[in-house]
């Protein structure tokens, strides 16, 4: 008789129970059988309270992000891949090479183990693809009705090499604004799934890790001032944030901002403005005007920015207005998002 026997996790029909978060043997079992196996790396395998990491030569960048998306699974990704990409991208936008991730899970009692497994494996795949190991983590369970299935918080640490300084307050009048591709794919993929809308061509989330693209952009030597990924609130909100931080205005050219046809149709149908819809695999770059064309060529050579474009320029404007020449030739403000356009998309 094996007196250390613990019943295997039932990944077919099993559900999360309160004891999975108790800190006892069942918790350890869940961690060992699911998380440690999927995230497999030597730091995690040590099984300590924290990961001891080797020294690095450069400034450290750290960023954290919580993920509460509903539905959990959507075309092009799920809460797992999103939680890896989103945090890697936040670090990458500071010009850093992402090195390590941590992941904290809040699970609701009753959550299907099969769904948890699918999500954890998706995270592991995304982390492996990005080359960024998940070196530490935490799991808590809340009673049924006190969560919404699963919430995931990830933290990333990266290193930025000397000579690179990117910040939202560095945009200057005359700088060019570049966008890496069509807008609104992620938000509309999630929303169309939630609203059961189907289109001739399905809308697929653009969720992706952007540090490879960023690395190519930095290597080009172009005078980059700001990088930012237009996630929640979309391109419009991100540009307003930068304009406020830098104390400048902006003038965009609507015709230069690409939107995939099904996204445009879905936005039209639901009365949404694609400029405010979330992206999870796009970036905005602000760079010195003389380097813009060269930077654009580098971006277009990368598979994640084939449709990159120069969408506008930075203006001197103490009011911080982001303005746009519309497709009709008129001029208008592209304002901060007022209220809430889309609930829970990332």
């Amino acid at each position: 008789m094996n007196i250390n026997y613990i019943r295997p996790l039932d990944f077919k029909n099993g559900r999360i129970e309160m004891q999975h978060g108790s800190g006892g043997r069942v918790t350890a079992h869940l961690i060992n059988e699911l998380f440690a196996k999927a995230f497999d790396n030597p730091y995690l395998a040590e099984g300590n309270d924290g990961a001891v990491l080797p020294p690095v030569s450069g400034r450290l960048v750290m960023s954290t992000d919580s993920h509460v998306v509903s539905p959990l699974f959507f075309a092009g990704g799920d809460i797992g891949s999103l939680s890896v990409h989103g945090t890697i991208n936040d670090v990458a936008m500071m010009g850093a090479v992402p090195l390590y991730l941590s992941a904290a899970f809040i699970l609701e009692e009753g959550f299907l183990l099969s769904d948890l497994k699918r999500i954890v494996e998706s995270m592991a795949h995304a982390a492996q693809e990005a080359g960024v190991p998940i070196v530490t983590g935490d799991t808590k369970v809340v009673e049924q009705g006190k969560g919404d299935g699963i919430f995931i918080t990830t933290t990333a640490v990266g290193m930025v090499r000397d000579g690179i300084t990117l910040s939202g307050n560095l945009a200057q009048a005359g700088d060019k604004i570049l966008l890496s591709g069509p807008v609104g794919d992620h938000g509309m993929a999630v929303l169309s799934q939630r609203e059961n809308l189907s289109f001739d061509a399905p809308i697929v989330s653009d969720t992706a890790a952007l540090h490879g693209l960023v690395s190519a952009m930095l290597d080009s030597g172009a005078g980059l001032r700001v990088l930012r990924d237009p996630t929640r609130g979309g391109v419009a909100t991100t540009l307003n944030e930068i304009a406020q931080q830098s104390g400048v205005g902006m003038l965009l050219n609507e015709a230069a901002i690409a939107i995939n046809k099904p996204v445009e149709a879905a936005c039209e149908f639901l009365g949404l403005d694609p400029l405010y819809v979330a992206n999870e695999g796009k970036l905005i770059a602000i760079c010195a005007p003389e380097d813009a064309v060269r930077l654009l060529a580098v971006m277009r050579a990368h598979p994640l920015a084939r449709d990159a474009a120069i969408i506008g320029e930075v203006l001197a404007d103490s009011h911080g207005f982001v303005q746009m020449i519309t497709r009709l030739g008129g001029r208008r403000i592209v304002d901060w998002l007022a209220g809430e356009q889309l609930p829970r998309i990332c």
Partner: peptide
């Protein structure tokens, strides 16, 4: 009118 800036035209 506002969204497309038609007053400018």
């Amino acid at each position: 009118i506002s969204r497309y800036g038609l007053a400018d035209l």
